[in-house]
């Protein structure tokens, strides 16, 4: 008996519970069905809505450490540092105000000229500021979660900017939160124009926060390092003329018909905290078409 006991205990160590295997099979099957339905038919938005509302406080909690850090650095900063920052900001304010005066005149003039040419270009205004709640855990997928949702009037396809330039667009809205895809996501394409020459192309995401790829530019095209890229307004999703990036590398390969051109986004995509949402042209506000590559890249008549 005494000799039996240890061997039985050893046997215990290696017991496998067959019920657990069955359970696993069932849960895995359910997951696969759910993923298929979610991915192909987007039919689980109700479930997602309920769960994401439940996760809302958790997201706020998750933001707490960063918020506390900001609060501390703002509140514990020395008087001298604050005064210095204040002076710097005031200087910037004066400078920007001066620029703004010029801009108002230019805008009025531009509108007058456009009306003479009978071309209707609406200039959309930023409508809403949203804060970043979370970044996708997956390092190859550049999606961000924002703290505004359908309730605040967000819709799929809405352009997202920060103070420097275009960030991305909304691809999914929940009641209180929404997901945006960044322009550097490998599945994103943004219709752009080289500001200096007017050449139109796409800016494809590469999965790196610092890189955009510009395909289909012929070898003889005039592109230089430092050229500014702006949105071209093709595809009807992004308004025209917003800064996207600057060209950082141009390689001409005599063997291939197109040049290899890489640009760097102007927005600091890995350091986003607050974003601006634009109200776009009316045809983009229909929240029907899925906002991925094909739709964003679909060319329209200029």
């Amino acid at each position: 008996m005494a000799a039996l006991k240890p061997s039985r205990r050893i046997h215990d160590l290696f017991t496998v519970n067959p019920r657990a295997t069955l359970q696993l099979g069932l849960w895995v099957a359910l997951s696969i069905v759910m993923m298929t339905v979610d991915h192909r038919y987007h039919a689980l938005n109700g479930v997602r809505d309920v769960l994401s509302t439940a996760m809302y406080p958790v997201h706020y909690l998750a933001r707490l450490p960063t918020d506390i850090q900001t609060w501390l650095s703002e509140n514990l900063a020395g008087r001298a540092a604050l005064l210095e920052e204040n002076a710097r900001l005031r200087e910037k304010q004066v400078f920007l105000n001066a620029q703004l005066q010029k801009l108002t005149i230019l805008e009025a003039e531009n509108r007058r000229l456009r009306s003479l040419l009978e071309s209707a270009v609406n200039t959309p205004e930023p409508v809403l500021i949203a804060e970043l709640l979370a970044v996708d855990f997956d390092p190859y997928r550049h999606h961000i979660l924002l703290n505004r949702g359908r309730q605040h009037g967000l819709y799929v396809g809405q352009p997202v900017l920060d103070q420097q330039g275009v960030i991305g667009q909304i691809i999914h809205t929940d009641l209180l939160t929404s997901t945006a895809i960044l322009i550097t996501d490998p599945n994103h394409a943004l219709p752009i124009q080289i500001n200096r020459t007017g050449a139109r192309t796409l800016a494809l995401g590469t999965g790196h926060f610092q890189e955009l790829e510009l395909p289909h530019i012929p070898n003889n095209e005039d592109v230089k390092v430092g050229d500014v890229l702006v949105t071209s307004g093709m595809g009807g999703r992004f308004p025209r003329g917003y800064p996207v990036g600057t060209v950082t590398r141009v390689e001409f390969d005599p063997g291939s018909p197109f040049a290899r051109i890489v640009a760097k986004p102007v927005a600091q995509l890995d350091r986003i905290r607050e974003v601006l949402l634009l109200e776009n042209a009316p045809d983009a506000s229909k929240p029907t078409a899925p906002a991925l590559t094909g739709a964003a890249a679909a060319p329209k008549k200029p």
């Binding site: 696993l24 849960w27 979610d38 996708d136």
Partner: peptide, 20 residues
């Protein structure tokens, strides 16, 4: 499933992985 929603993954992605 909650993590899927929290991280904006496909519904069921982390659920499957965590079950395994």
């Amino acid at each position: 499933l909650l993590v899927d929603v929290g991280r904006g993954a496909l519904l069921g992605q982390y659920a499957l992985a965590f079950a395994a």
